[in-house]
């Protein structure tokens, strides 16, 4: 028997996998059946309810599922992995060092801050243009701008580090 901690839409749920066709969630045992239709499409029977669920996109460690037209984000960890994750999270929080990454490929239109400037959590740092749209990129934490790794007019790849805040 294996126990997992699933973070689903930012809430944590514990799931025990009893067998291929049986799980336990919220203290309730439920019969399930999982059938893969293709790489990212699953026919899933939960109790007596039938769902067609698609795997929309993997965003870092999260998987975004499609169910009935809705998006649900989930990440599955074993109990051990979950403990390690929580530990890691506490360490990085105490280090107080944040990297601002490009959430999508695009063109740096404007950088609103200079090195050494103080920023607040959620403050707009720069404008990234992608697909004809101007997107504000906000600060993930409060602190001082330590490094700016791009110039206005430059294009950046997805997930490349643009700014470091300390």
């Amino acid at each position: 028997m294996n126990e997992y901690v699933i973070t689903v839409n930012h809430k944590k749920k514990q799931v025990k996998v009893l067998s291929q066709n049986q799980i336990e969630i919220n203290g309730e045992i439920i019969n399930v059946s999982l059938q893969k239709i293709s790489n990212n499409l699953i026919s899933f029977i939960y109790g007596n309810k039938v769902y067609e669920i698609a795997l929309n996109k993997n965003e870092s460690e999260y998987t975004r599922f499609l169910i009935d037209g809705w998006h649900i984000d989930a990440v599955a960890r074993t109990k051990l992995e979950e403990t390690a994750f929580e530990l890691q999270k506490n360490i990085s929080a105490s280090k107080h060092h944040a990297e601002v990454k490009a959430p999508m490929p695009g063109l740096i239109l404007k950088i609103k801050k200079k090195i050494g400037e103080k920023v607040e959590l959620g403050e707009p740092l720069l404008i990234l243009e992608a697909m004809k749209m101007e997107n504000d990129i906000h600060s993930p934490s409060s602190g001082i701008i330590k490094e700016i790794r791009c110039k206005e007019g430059e294009s950046v790849e997805k997930n490349s580090i643009i700014i470091i805040i300390e």
Partner: peptide, 8 residues
């Protein structure tokens, strides 16, 4: 449902 599927 998604939590169960993720675990499986």
């Amino acid at each position: 449902v998604i939590a169960s599927l993720s675990a499986l």
